[in-house]
Amino acid sequence: MKIHGISWVGSRTSNYQAMRDFAADALGLKVEREQENAVVFGLPDGSALEVFKPTDSDHSFFDHPVAGLIVDDVREARAELEAKGVEFIGEVHDGVEDSWGTAWSHLRAPDGHIYVLISRPALTERSEPVVTKRRFDELRVCLKVKDIDEAVRVYRDGLGMEIVDDWTHPAGQRGVLFGVVPAAVELFDEAQWELVDDAELGRQVSGDHTLRVEVRDVDEIESLAKVLADVGVSRDGEVTQTPWEQNCLRMSTSEGEQLTLFTLPAEERVVREEARSVLSVRPV
């Protein structure tokens, strides 16, 4: 049995609405899944906070927040722990479409508290977590723009990115640095570049770089598109689904900068979130 980490926390509470508001408004967490008796908040590293309503009878034995230990196979891990005398509560539960995990099983540890073993698709699809060997602390992508004030409005007011530094030299040269977490570098060969243009827009667009912004669902694509339109970014079409099951909306700034808002298929999103959680820390 291998424990990959503690990536889930569950809480059943009689103050459900207050706890939901605390997670959403005070902590700023985004709703990842809405269920009949619970809500799941997703965190940037792929982990989750799940808040259960008092009407959720399946978790009536929760009298404190419960931590989830991520394993490859819940049944194998449970059998191994039962052989060591660990007490489990109920049977192994298999997830449904809106479940955060694929399977889980609750246990009582020697401290008297409840914990839960959970398996997830990303961990059953690869044997080992992604390992990074990067030798730097920060990667900066520099873009030359004609109107820096307009560009700032797009990135700050449109995309909601935070300015971490800005400067003006004595002769008037200006620069602005935005903090971006998480981020990724994506490389396409020419054929892939043309394939993406055709799939997202139905035609080829000049240029050798573009910005791609991942959001959670189509509603977020439309919401962000409206915000970007308010700062001068125009839609180049409608939301389309590519053959690789991404929903995409192509937009462009007044200077012709290409911007794609997109969603990932559910399984691919889980894999990316797991990868981001590993890549967030530089190896020693």
Rank of each mutant, 00 (worst) to 15 (best):
A191G: 03
G232Q: 05
P182K: 03
A199E: 05
V185K: 15
T210K: 15
V185I: 15
L211A: 06
D219Y: 04
V218P: 07
E190V: 13
F188K: 14
E214Q: 14
G207C: 02
H209G: 07
D208H: 14
A183N: 05
K226R: 13
A229D: 12
E194H: 11
E200T: 08
E200N: 09
L195D: 12
Q192F: 05
P182S: 04
R212H: 05
D198C: 07
V233L: 08
A229Y: 06
V218R: 15
D219T: 12
S234I: 12
V218Q: 15
W193N: 12
P182V: 15
D219I: 09
V205T: 01
L211V: 00
A225M: 05
V218T: 15
Q204K: 15
L201A: 13
V196N: 06
V181E: 14
P182F: 01
G232S: 05
E200Y: 05
A191K: 13
D189Y: 08
H209I: 00
V227C: 11
G232H: 03
V205M: 10
E200Q: 06
D189P: 03
E190Y: 10
G179L: 08
L228E: 11
L201K: 06
A199V: 04
D208M: 10
A229S: 07
V215M: 00
T210V: 12
P182E: 07
A191N: 03
